[in-house]
Structures are given as structure tokens and as C-alpha cells.
Design a protein around this nucleic acid. Structure first.
Length: 568
RNA sequence: GGGCCUGUAGCUCAAUUGGUUAGAGCAGAGCGCUCAUAACGCUUUGGUUGCAGGUUCGAGUCCUGCCGGGCCUACCA
């Protein structure tokens, strides 16, 4: 039995996430956590909301609410949606927690003592009307390169040229439109990542089993141009972790906060404290401090590819730089993007399906199955309604759901709602068990390796074996001449239901629970298929469950395709 | 501009890292079954692996060039 710490990239507080976000971190992390728990490993699975930063302040202002109140409400919304998708976090925390504030300040203090913090005075654009400094992308103006009038201060969306805000012609605030901008001097803290470049490089080099996507992004940042750059870790904002050196004030940094990307990953640690403080567990250091029991912990992170630099470089720099024995990540599973019907999901244009809408139209299992079995592991993947309807109907309704339906109903009509007695297993059953064992081993291998699409394919193949067995054993034919034989076949097939329920639970937890419920069974991982397929004793009562998966009709599909095409 | 990823059947994806005849699912076609959500099973059509060269006994896999798609490029997170 191993101990595994799992974190999913923490979703930004600002708004409801779409299915692309979901499949890029939280959903696969949940799959892995559920699988490992089912295999009796000790798992701590953490996630939280990422609450600081300019977008949160602006979203709150737009909603006409204090930012703390806005974040509290949005946290609840995201929490409810997580529950709706059956994401089995041990704790869903908040980066704005007191625990994270203290820990973030602690890390900054340690880094300063280690000489890894540099104070830099720089020039930034200040908007008098907005009363705030503007990040580059919140300054708009005419592109000096192509004349596009709505170019952003960081890059022109029209000609893709990278810009500096001072290059813009007629610059204005993207927030208020005000042109009353001035350049002001401000002081910020920089994390001297460059000083740790070689150490990080060696560490990344040692991770030969990581996905190419993960290491290639890290390598690029380490070696591009002048190598790893120092990173500003403070901002002139109100909403965030106040800059402190441990518990001490930081002279000259009054009124400033840490940059979200500094405090967000630290929340992974703080979240474990929140978990304890919420009374859900004890001894968080056992998971995070290698000097206090975390030495045998395997730490796995899940994230979309856009998050990779922060998890491979910035956060490890923070941890290593502290000089304290914090647990470093052991494996990073990163994902490409899920596209929507020939384009990208777009939050601003309301294009695609968002988590709340998804649950309004279909149960979580439908989404979980389709998204996970099409997880963008090797390249971007694509959601289309046609594929979604076809795959879900075929895999869930026809192959799995109908299997449960046909055998329970057959048994009810011939033997009643009890596991029938009589007959014994023969060669057909031996062959079935052999085939199941082979596939089960492959399934376990893929789940262990977090090869999600392959695991899904293997699981589906396990379901198919049940249909193949029924078809060739044909208990409806045997029943006419040899009732005992029909009973043995039926008994074996009924045993497949709890077997499938247990194996499928990481993908489709609700349907799995319904299957166990109907069969009056509890999940026990089938190490040995022979034992698993004879677990139900003759005379054991069951009920015929409701249809597990209703099919998606052509009308529904057409309706949804128009409804989610854009302009939410 | 630079870097990385990617291009395989109508569609979505594999191919044990250079090794026999490139495989699955879906969709299409045919047959079978009648327990079941018109479900299931069996068989089957379908490929110049983006294009052109090269290395090799052997290339989907390695090299070069070209064409297409995507991502990142450090102040959104």
C-alpha cells in the first residue's frame, strides 16, 4: 500500500469553467485518485480555487461586489459544480485562506534569507482614473506595427507582434477606456530563478518518465535565450497575500501583495492544512514534509499545458529555494486542449459547454466517460456533438447499460430476482475468466501509468467480453433443454455486474453505485477474476435496475448543437 | 521571428521507441441471435502513414526540405 498525494491545477475563481478546463486537470486527477483508493492505497487529493489577481478584482467590480464576497460566492459555485461532477477532492480549499497567507509569507521570508529575492525598482503604467497600475494586457491602443486599433499592451492580436505598452499609439485603459495614463516608479520583489537554473535543470533531466509535453516546455524555459529569467512575485494590488517577510513587515513593500502565481501553488500545501483544520484529516506534514513522514509519498500533479512552466520551474524554485524539506512533485501529467466543434472553447464568446450547462442537460457520468475516453493526452482533441452522441450511446447505453439490462431481465423472467442455483462452470466460463484477467491486467497497467484513453479502451473491451460471453453461451437457448446449465451461465453473467461496477467506478461513479445497489453488493477490487465471478452466492437477491443510461436522441443533439454554438 | 508538438482508414485514435502482412472503436456492407435500451454477436469493405528526397538489410518510426494544423514565447491566470 502506497501513499499518493494528488493535486489538480487550481481553477481561477473568475467564472465557471468549461469542459476543456475540466478534462485538462480536475477530471483526470479524480480518475486517478478514485482508482488508487479502489486499490486500497492511501490518497490525499487536493484542489482549491485560485482567487487572487487583477481578473478577480475586475470581475467583482463588474458584479458590484466586494472582491472577498465575490470570491466566497464563486467558490461555492465551483464547489457545487465539483460535487456535481463527482470530483472526489479530500478538500476543496481557497488560495485566499489564512493558512495560505501565512505559508506564502513564510516562503517569501525563507527565500529572502537564502538571498533569492531581489528588490527591483521599475516603471509601470498607472491609470489615474482607475486608481491602479495596469498589467500590460490591460492597456489597449493602436498597434505600431499593423495599425490595429485594439492591440493589447503585451501583444497585438491582429498581427501577433509582441509589444511593450509604451509602444502603443494612443494608449488607454482596457478597464475604463481612460487615456489618463502615466508611467510611475514602483518597487517589486523578484524571485532569482536564474540562480537556481542549474539545479532545476538537473532535476528536470532526472525526470525521464515524464510526458514529453511536460519536459519540453520546462526545457524551453530553461534554455531559451538567456536561460531562465527571474520572475516578479509581487504586484500593486489590494486583493492578495500582503507582502511580508515571514511574520515581519517588509520595508518598502507596504500595500503590495504577492503575485498570484507565487501564492497559487503554495495553496497546494496550505490546502492540506485547511483539510486538517476542517476536521477531515490529521497531520498534514506527513504529506508535505519529507522530514515528517512524507518521504515515502509519491506526489502527482495534473494540469493543462499552459500551467507547466509554473509547476516545473517557479514552484520547485520556491520549494528548493526555501532550503526546507518540502515534498517535490514526482510526476507531472499534463494535457493538451480540448477544442469545440472545429474551434476553441471560448469563455468570452460563450462558445462550447460549461460545467453548469453540462450538468443541466445530462448526468455527470456521460461527460466523465466521454471526456476521459477522449482526453487530449498526445495532442489537442475535439468535441463534436455527433461524436459525443454516438460514443456515449454506443459505449454506455448499448455496451454496458444494455448488458446489465439484458441479463437482469433474463434472470428475472426465468429464475426470479435471485442468483440462480445449479449447474457449474465449464470451458466457456474458464475462457471468459482468462480473457477478463488479461484485459484487467492491461487496464490496471494503464491506470497505474495514467494512460487514460488506453485505460478507457480497455475498460470498454471488458464490457464487450460480457456481451460476447452471453451471445455464445446463449442461456436463453440452454434454458429450453438444460435449466442447470442456463442457471450457471446466468449466475456467471450476474456476477459480471458488480465486477464491472467496481472497475468502472473511477470513470462513471454514479452508474457504478447504481449497479452495486441493484445487485446488493459493495465494491471489492477483483484481484482474481475467478473469485470475483463466483462471489455472488446462489439465492442472493437483486433487483432489476432502471435504465442506466438513456440514449441521446437526434433531436436533443441538434438542439444542443445550436444552443451552445456561441454567445452565451 | 524563435522553440515545441502534430499530420496514419470517412471520423476519433493505436502501433512494445528501427523489425514480418500498419491495428482498434465508430460509421458503411453482409450474416446470425431473440435475453435486452431496434440492443448484442460474427464476418467484412476501407491506407502510396501530408508531399519530395536521403540513411539503412529493413522507415509510420531516424535525417533534410517543403506543405498543413496547434501550442508556447515569461505582466491574464
Amino acid at each position: 500500500m502506497a501513499r499518493i498525494l494528488i493535486t489538480s491545477a487550481i481553477p481561477y475563481i473568475n467564472g465557471i469553467k468549461h469542459l476543456g478546463n475540466l478534462v485538462g486537470s480536475q477530471l483526470p486527477a479524480d480518475l486517478y485518485a478514485r482508482y488508487l483508493r479502489a486499490r486500497s492505497h492511501e490518497v490525499l487529493f487536493l484542489c482549491a480555487t485560485d482567487e487572487h489577481g487583477t481578473p478577480a478584482e475586475l470581475a467583482a467590480a463588474k458584479a458590484g461586489k466586494p472582491v472577498a464576497e465575490y470570491c466566497a460566492e464563486m467558490w461555492q459555485v465551483q464547489k457545487d459544480l465539483s460535487d456535481g461532477f463527482r470530483l472526489s477532492f479530500d478538500h476543496f480549499g481557497r488560495s485566499s485562506s489564512a493558512q495560505n497567507r501565512a505559508l506564502t509569507q513564510h516562503f517569501a521570508g525563507r527565500l529572502a534569507e537564502a538571498g533569492l529575492i531581489e528588490e527591483v525598482t521599475e516603471q509601470q503604467v498607472y491609470s489615474v482614473a482607475d486608481g491602479r497600475f495596469l498589467p500590460d494586457r490591460y492597456i489597449e491602443g493602436t498597434c505600431p506595427n499593423c495599425g490595429y486599433e485594439r492591440a493589447r499592451g503585451d501583444q497585438c492580436e491582429n498581427c501577433t507582434k509582441q509589444l511593450d505598452p509604451v509602444d502603443l499609439i494612443n494608449p488607454r485603459s482596457a478597464i475604463s477606456g481612460s487615456t489618463d495614463l502615466e508611467v510611475r516608479e514602483t518597487k517589486h520583489l523578484y524571485l532569482r530563478q536564474s540562480a537556481m537554473k542549474d539545479e532545476l535543470d538537473r532535476w528536470i533531466d532526472s525526470k525521464t518518465d515524464w510526458p514529453v509535453l511536460t519536459t519540453s516546455i520546462a526545457k524551453k524555459w530553461l534554455h531559451d535565450g538567456d536561460g531562465l529569467q527571474d520572475r516578479g512575485i509581487t504586484r500593486d494590488l489590494d486583493w492578495g497575500v500582503p507582502v511580508k517577510k515571514g511574520t515581519e513587515d517588509w520595508p518598502g513593500m507596504e500595500g503590495k501583495v504577492f503575485y498570484v502565481w507565487f501564492d497559487a501553488p503554495i495553496e497546494y500545501i496550505a490546502c492540506a492544512q485547511e483539510w486538517v483544520d476542517a476536521g477531515k484529516g490529521q497531520d498534514w506534514e506527513r504529506w508535505w514534509r519529507t522530514d515528517k513522514g512524507a518521504n515515502d509519498v509519491r506526489y502527482v500533479q495534473f494540469m493543462g499545458k499552459d500551467n507547466v512552466p509554473f509547476h516545473t520551474l517557479s514552484f520547485p524554485a520556491t520549494i528548493l529555494g526555501s532550503g526546507e524539506p518540502w515534498k517535490l512533485v514526482d510526476y507531472i501529467k499534463s494535457f493538451n486542449y480540448l477544442n469545440y466543434d472545429g474551434g476553441q472553447f471560448s469563455t468570452s464568446q460563450g462558445r462550447g459547454v460549461f460545467m453548469d450547462q453540462a450538468l443541466e442537460i445530462l448526468p455527470a457520468d456521460y461527460w466523465r466517460w466521454w471526456l476521459l475516453s477522449h482526453a487530449p493526452e498526445t495532442s489537442d482533441s475535439e468535441f463534436t456533438w455527433e461524436a459525443f452522441q454516438q460514443d456515449v450511446n454506443k459505449d454506455l447505453a448499448d455496451v454496458l447499460g444494455n448488458f446489465v439490462s439484458r441479463i437482469t431481465k433474463f434472470c428475472r423472467s426465468k429464475f426470479g430476482e435471485v442468483v440462480p442455483e445449479g449447474g457449474e462452470a465449464g470451458t466457456a466460463e474458464a475462457e471468459l475468466m482468462q480473457a477478463l484477467q488479461t484485459r484487467l491486467d492491461a487496464y490496471s497497467r494503464h491506470m497505474q501509468a495514467i494512460d487514460i484513453r488506453k485505460a478507457a479502451a480497455e475498460l470498454r473491451a471488458l464490457w464487450v467480453l460480457g456481451n460476447e460471453y452471453l451471445q455464445s453461451a446463449a442461456p436463453w437457448t440452454a434454458f429450453k433443454t438444460d435449466e442447470a446449465r442456463a442457471a450457471a451461465i446466468t449466475r456467471t453473467a450476474l456476477n459480471l455486474i458488480p465486477f464491472y461496477a467496481t472497475l468502472s467506478a473511477p470513470f462513471i461513479p454514479d452508474a457504478a453505485a447504481a449497479m452495486h445497489d441493484a445487485m446488493g453488493t459493495a465494491p471489492v477490487w477483483p484481484d482474481d477474476t475467478r473469485a470475483a465471478l463466483t462471489a455472488l452466492p446462489p439465492g442472493h437477491a437483486f433487483t432489476v435496475p432502471d435504465v442506466l443510461f438513456k440514449k441521446i436522441t437526434d433531436e436533443e443533439r441538434a438542439d444542443w448543437a445550436t444552443r451552445f454554438a456561441g454567445r452565451r
